[in-house]
Design a binder for these strands. Structure first.
Lengths: 116, 116
DNA sequence: TGACTGTTTTACCATATGGTAATATAGTTG
DNA sequence: CAACTATATTACCATATGGTAAAACAGTCA
């Protein structure tokens, strides 16, 4: 049997993973998650902080809730959300470092060219 | 100044991160990456292994290439691709563990209900 | 109760995107 | 060169999805 560095994943698993990525593929949802950070904010506070439409924020929050990325707590008229899946931030950091590496490589390529 | 566990990211950064997630949000692209694993395969081999259409595989590979996730090497008539950004697999693993945790929680919720 | 506030849902439009057939391109071989 | 193979590109269709206005819903307060 061949030795592999990476786990073989079933198509079913890959579909679920893709769905999670799809959820994170929307800038507005990332903005919401990033705005939440480790705080608990109401929908209204998120609307104000992000500048997005209220229905839009609510819809995105519903999707994040269904996926289990955020938690929901009702208090009076307000509904408070917070991030309950910390892997979200780990994923962003990993992507960020990958992007940083790539950009650095591209930058150095340009630099090498201009100085040559 | 408030202490935060998570870095504050600019909207621009979040847009780039979202773009990366969008690239990984397509099951067929994940299948291609997972099929590649740590091997170098030709387009034809990928077509056969995945069962997808040739044009489709080629298009997805082009996107992965442009994003710097895979490398491309031409040899005669064949073109060989391989994964050159290992963070891809790390991201999948992180998502997988998150999904596993969530499913386990749901499962135990069901179990608690049925045995009660 | 009725007026008001915060949130969710619905209906709809505009846009983006995946799949594919057909075609183009590049490279090999006779 | 022509015939062939492997890959890439183009054009197109069908579908999915984000944003938003309007309406519905839920909870508060006078």
């Amino acid at each position: 049997m061949k030795r592999r560095r990476h786990k073989e994943l079933t198509v079913e698993a890959l579909n679920m993973i893709a769905a999670r990525f799809r959820l994170l593929a929307e800038p507005m949802r990332l903005i919401i998650l990033n705005t939440l950070g480790d705080e608990e904010l109401s929908v209204g506070e998120l609307v104000e902080a992000t500048g997005a439409g209220q229905a839009n924020v609510s819809k995105h929050l519903g999707m994040l809730l269904e996926a289990g990325l955020v938690g929901r707590r009702k208090e009076g008229l307000n509904v408070y959300y917070k991030v309950i899946d910390e892997t979200v931030f780990a994923l962003c950091e990993t992507v960020c470092s990958s992007l940083g590496q790539r950009l650095a490589a591209q930058q150095s390529a340009v630099k090498n060219f201009t100085t040559r």
